[in-house]
Design a protein around this nucleic acid. Structure first.
Length: 560
RNA sequence: UGGCCUAUGGUGUAAUUGGCAACACAGCUGGUUUUGGUCCAGUCGUUCUAGGUUCGAGUCCUAGUAGGCCAACCA
């Protein structure tokens, strides 16, 4: 992880300031608090990197806490997925915690508040309470149940807990101030009745605590020093502090909530609710579809944990609205894969080349470097024969000097092999080119050291021997949305911007050595991009996902 | 109509806390290259507006403008 003398973000400045003011470094503790109601996405990765990065920087523990107070939406499946995502990103949490572990303590504290006259049972409908709540510009009015006796409150609250009342009949509210300018302080709900089984406490509880009552107290129970959350919780801070005030022991650590802006990524949505919508409407094939900005989707797409961490690190953290361009994410995955991915040859859009002066039936095994960025990666052998596939885009009958590829009468180097010259081509009835006839220079073999082999020819093409080619399914992914910020249009739904061509499935022809490729292995298909073996692969049929194409300056030249 | 938050190149973040506005990405030029990749060199371009304090303001003050958040028995 990159630390050292890098400049600090504003959260680190806050910690540094606390330390400078005498805050004991030993008391530093952070937490990552996901709700297990969906899969983690790239935005969570930023939060994970922030919290665990702080833990690493200050050698402080970081808890993984599941904020599981709503059994209606939460499931164990999500808990397991979240744990494996955090681990995959390369982080180790100190304690695995659950807000549900604190239900009894929270309940006991609630009794205390009732006894102190700071909480009461309200027996109105949610509509009635909403009406009394007022608006941001008008104060609310007190509930008619606000002044129930402590005894009555205690009895009702116990009844709620035991399941004596139906859902919606009663709630427990904190007695604060119905005219507060902060709407959250207008007697916020602490508990609601819910006759639902919880993934951990089963049917033990018929009441469940609300977020505001739970979160700060959980931080306090765990003795978290700095509780970091996103900007929309800024106005919750006042309530966070009020709830803490009711229970805090001055001898213990008092957690401090601070807020940062969530990261938005261009050409996608970063919201569990919207991602769930994509899954449920079958716009993608599940949470780990490689087009999804989820951690599991990026993993399946071929991203490395390092690349995601580096991305989070360079993007940084601040308090203003933002829209990070995906090209930055793509830069980081290319940067890492360039160093570690073995190079191979694969043709995705084939056209046949026949080398007319090459002996029929002959096969030569040619040496090919595995990674020019890493000498230790060694080399392998690839078969060469009379009939080859090259990319259709790499041949034109006629072209100008800017086209460094194969054209009639022109020469080109076949990577790791020979220099060939295009002599003629055949076409079908529609005029489509079906085959290119070439001749090769037998003395130009790569690495042979001959004068001919050292000749400079402008273009180098990748290729695959037709009789040896391994065919595989190749999934080409593009951005999921055509708009850079699909969910910020007032008049349009984000679903209107779905890219209809976000997935193209083709058959590719690969060098035969790839037949033993394992799921999750990553390769650079030379001149094309980075690809990884998808879990859908079977022993007889490989499936490759394109992680990201190589930078393509030729495409830019062509645009002009 | 109220409260809170934010404003620095196209994008994202810095600025020793009042002292020459920098880093990365993207863009553009060139060089190297058996990947039009990588790598190398260069280049473009920034403090929302108006006042004020100060020898000096991105930073402090005032006013304005723009954007975001806040009225779920969600988190």
């Amino acid at each position: 992880m990159s630390e050292g003398n890098k400049s600090l973000n504003f959260i680190e400045h806050i910690v540094e300031e606390d330390l400078a003011n005498g805050y004991p470094k030993k008391q530093l503790r952070f937490r990552f608090p996901p709700e297990p109601n969906g899969y983690l996405h790239i935005g969570h990765a930023s939060s994970i990197c922030l919290n665990f990065g702080l833990g690493l920087r200050y050698n402080a523990p970081v808890n993984l806490r599941f904020d599981d107070t709503n059994p209606v939406k939460e499931e164990k499946e999500y808990v397991d997925a979240i744990k494996s995502d955090v681990e995959w990103l390369g982080y180790e949490w100190d304690i695995e915690c659950y807000a549900s572990d604190y239900f009894q303590q929270l309940y006991d504290w609630a009794i205390l508040l009732i006894k102190q006259g700071k909480a009461y049972v309200d027996s109105q409908t949610s509509e009635e309470m909403a009406k009394q709540k007022g608006t941001p510009t008008e104060p609310g009015v007190n509930s008619p149940f606000r002044d129930r006796s402590v005894e009555e409150n205690l009895e009702l609250f116990q009844g709620m807990k035991q399941g004596d009342f139906p859902e919606g009949s009663h709630v427990l509210r904190a007695k604060i101030d119905m005219s507060a300018s902060n709407m959250l302080m207008r007697d916020p709900l602490m508990y609601r009745v819910l006759h639902k089984a919880h993934h951990r406490t089963d049917t033990d509880w018929c009441i469940y605590p609300m977020y505001d009552w739970t979160h700060g107290e959980s931080d306090y129970i765990e003795q978290v020093s700095h509780s970091l959350c996103t900007l929309e919780f800024a106005s919750h801070r006042e309530l966070y502090d009020w709830f803490l005030d009711q229970v805090v022991d001055p001898k213990k650590v008092r957690p401090k909530q601070r807020e940062f802006a969530r990261r938005n990524l261009s050409h996608t949505v970063v919201s569990k609710r919207k991602l769930l919508q994509l899954v449920e409407n079958n716009m993608v094939n599940g949470w780990d579809d490689p087009r999804m900005p989820t951690i599991s989707g990026l993993r399946r797409r071929g991203y490395t944990p390092e690349s995601i961490r580096n991305f989070a690190d360079t993007v940084g953290i601040a308090k203003r609205e933002n829209l990070v361009d995906v090209s930055l994410l793509e830069f980081h995955v290319r940067e890492h894969l360039n160093k570690i991915a073995p190079r191979v040859m694969g043709v995705l859009n084939p056209i046949k080349v026949v080398i007319t002066n090459y002996p029929e039936g002959n096969t030569e095994w040619l040496k090919a470097e595995n990674n020019p960025e890493d000498e230790a990666a060694g080399s392998r052998e690839v078969p060469f024969s009379r009939e080859l596939y090259i990319e259709q885009e790499d041949f034109k009958e006629e072209a100008n000097r800017k086209f460094f590829r194969l054209k009639l009468g022109g020469e080109v180097r076949l990577k790791n092999a020979y220099i060939i010259k295009a002599e003629s081509c055949s076409k079908d009835a529609q005029g489509n080119i079906t085959e290119i006839q070439c001749t090769y220079d037998p003395k130009s073999k790569s690495g042979s050291g001959t004068e001919e082999s050292l000749r400079k020819v402008k273009g180098t093409l990748h290729w695959v021997s037709v009789p040896h080619a391994l065919s595989a399914e190749v999934r080409l992914y593009d951005r999921l949305f055509t708009d850079e910020s699909p969910d910020t249009h007032k008049d349009k739904d984000f679903m209107d911007f779905i890219n209809p061509d976000s997935l193209r499935i083709i058959t590719g022809f690969l060098e035969p050595g790839l037949k033993d490729a394992k799921i999750g292995e990553r390769f650079q298909f030379q001149r094309l991009g980075y690809f990884t073996v998808d879990p859908d692969s079977t022993p007889g049929k490989l499936v490759f996902n394109r992680t990201v194409p190589l930078r393509d300056t030729w495409a830019k030249i062509q645009e002009k």
